[in-house]
Design a protein around this nucleic acid. Structure first.
Lengths: 188, 188
DNA sequence: GTAACTGATGTCAGTTGCTGCCATCAGTAT
DNA sequence: ATACTGATGGCAGCAACTGACATCAGTTAC
């Protein structure tokens, strides 16, 4: 394998995914991942800030998409519905990646460190949402709460979507979960 | 300092708190903390699983208290109100520790790794709450959502409480934040 | 009262995640 | 050709963490 094979980053992700799921996250060293991808350990750390991040590369794009979707939502809607609309709009893109998402989620669920990283990504998502809401003149703490609610609902819906073998629509599950949210907080 | 000075754990916490806030989390080594507490680095890792955990020792007690409070809440209440009641009951105990909480929170807010750990503690809290709700025959996803909402509200309220110099009542802030939540999710 | 036991600690060596520094190599512009 | 740029390798080193074993103080058994 030559020094300049294309898509170094993608190869690292794939190698990590394979090793993490076969022998476990803890039992995999960065050196092994790099070797499998035909690169050096040093290069791994040029592409990813740490050993976990290799599984969370897509998070920032997702966040940007989400914020864009929120910015484009109808002006008249109440905060919580704006969040719902934005999430449902983005969720459509997940349908093709059901298998990948499942593989990745299995690895994350098995390891505490990875779960931590996942949580912080979702937290960052929530705070980006809250920012975007404030830009729409939603006041505090409504903005934070609406954003936080939205992410919680997303987690619940995503988990359900992952569990389902027959791949139902993520946007559809989302819509149902938002309905649930309203029922719950109404105190029923 | 003799080998068997009392309260090794407490000394480690105090030493860590001082060092983290004076020179920063990253710039503090575990060896330094241990030395300041009159102990060896190895002993630090016998008391805490990692360098962050020294700031989160109280989390498990808090969780137990919270679950107990929830188990003791009136039977007839809807899920979200059960969570609110339990949180408000526990929050009373915070009033004396306002200064400590503030010190700790400042350190945590300044460091990404520590924020991650904080998030995962809150997540664990949420899942313990959800378990307790299910024990009360609250079904899914209502249990998860109510728990998650409760923790989100708690975060918002706690943050506000930390910011206030004149030490208002945390339970009081909590109650107001729960009201906000209901308004927000109602779509106002 | 001494010996065995227990639990907290120290010491030391070793692994691994991660960083800084500098050399090297491929492609591109000059 | 030459210089420049960007991705990579190689190496040295720090700090987080672990395992194995010795040590010491307090307690219990005899």
């Amino acid at each position: 394998m030559g020094r300049w094979e294309p898509n170094a980053r993608g190869r690292l992700v794939e190698a990590a995914l394979e090793l993490y799921s076969s022998r476990g996250y803890d039992q995999t060293t960065v050196a092994e991942i790099a070797k499998r991808a035909g690169l050096s350990e040093r290069t791994f750390f040029r592409h990813f800030t740490d050993k976990r991040e290799v599984l969370f590369g897509g998070a920032s794009e997702f966040q940007e998409q989400l914020v864009r979707a929120l910015d484009n939502a109808p002006v008249a809607l109440p905060a919580i519905d704006v969040v719902a609309v934005a999430l449902e709009a983005i969720a459509g893109g997940f349908s093709e990646r059901h298998e990948f998402a499942r593989r990745r989620q299995t690895i994350i669920a098995e390891n505490a460190e990875l779960s931590e990283r996942e949580r912080i990504k979702l937290a960052s998502l929530a705070s980006a949402l809250a920012d975007a809401l404030r830009r729409r003149k939603v006041s505090e703490p409504a903005a934070t709460l609406a954003a936080e609610m939205g992410i919680a609902v997303f987690r619940v819906a995503f988990e359900r979507w992952i569990r389902e073998t027959n791949q139902p629509d993520l946007p559809h599950i989302l819509r149902g979960s938002f309905e649930e949210l309203k029922t719950v907080t109404a105190g029923k």
